[in-house]
């Protein structure tokens, strides 16, 4: 294993642990955060199944954003769906044999990268060109878009401009997953940039605004059933106070 490979191997082990533990802690924190009030955005579903459908529509189609602003929805949805396909395409580097559905979506994932980068460019233009949004944009808002754009462009560079040795890359990655450190990472500049940016993303993910990904599932205005009249909403800590008062 070359020096560079050792460096990247350590970087990715560290990044993976930080991502998994950090995200786990955040999700645990979100799950424990009290939702003392019944506040679903009306009209809300009256059954639990309805809520599942509502959350799913929100997560897959960004329904609320669609209703409030069409052009932001176009860019945001393009980026997220593009990213989803691109990520799914990357599964070929971590599975052996490669799953059939992953083989089938390879060409779609390739062209989804254009949608992803176009969406990011649109979202960044929004931060710069819409005065109201520019005023409330923090440096981290811009840097996050730059980071994702850097990952997208360096990846597309390898697919469409300067190819890399993907067989060696897969051997290196499968090696990391199996604690077999005999395969070296190819040292193409685009690949090293791409992987470095991805590691940075993995590390900052659990302390960044990207936590909206798990966070959307814990949004009380989205995930509550409209049954305030049928069933009294009582937070556990409020139940304790209630019991004390009854004594």
């Amino acid at each position: 294993m070359s020096f560079l490979s050792i460096l990247y191997a350590l970087l990715f082990y560290a990044a993976t642990i930080l991502l998994v533990v950090g995200l786990g802690r955040k999700i645990a924190q979100y799950a424990r955060t009290p939702a003392p009030l019944k506040i679903p955005t009306m009209p809300a579903p009256t059954t639990q199944t309805g809520v599942v459908i509502r959350v799913a529509t929100e997560v897959v189609f960004f329904r609320q954003l669609f209703k409030s602003n069409k052009w932001i929805w176009v860019f945001g949805w393009m980026f997220h769906m593009g990213l989803f396909l691109v990520l799914a395409r990357h599964l070929r580097y971590f599975t052996e044999p490669v799953w059939t559905w992953v083989v089938l979506i390879q060409p779609f994932g390739k062209y989804a990268s254009f949608a992803m980068v176009a969406g990011l460019a649109g979202l960044w233009a929004r931060r710069i060109l819409v005065e109201r949004i520019r005023y409330i944009s923090a440096p981290s808002d811009h840097l996050m878009l730059a980071l994702l754009l850097g990952i997208g462009l360096s990846g597309m560079g390898m697919t469409f401009v300067a190819h890399i040795d993907i067989v060696s890359l897969k051997a290196f990655l499968l090696g990391l997953m199996r604690f077999d450190w005999s395969h070296s990472l190819p040292s193409d500049a685009l690949l090293l940039i791409h992987l470095l940016l991805v590691a940075i993303l993995m590390i900052i993910f659990p302390i960044s605004k990207l936590l909206h990904a798990p966070g959307v599932f814990f949004s009380p205005t989205l995930n509550q059933v409209d049954n305030a009249r049928e069933k009294r909403h009582l937070a556990p800590w409020a139940a304790e106070l209630d019991a004390k008062r009854a004594e």
């Binding site: 051997a171 499968l174 199996r178």
Partner: peptide
């Protein structure tokens, strides 16, 4: 989780 995911082929090495 890391150990279990790795242990399936720890000594087998990465397929090439």
């Amino acid at each position: 989780v890391l150990l279990i995911s790795g242990s399936t082929a720890v000594f087998a090495g990465a397929p090439v």
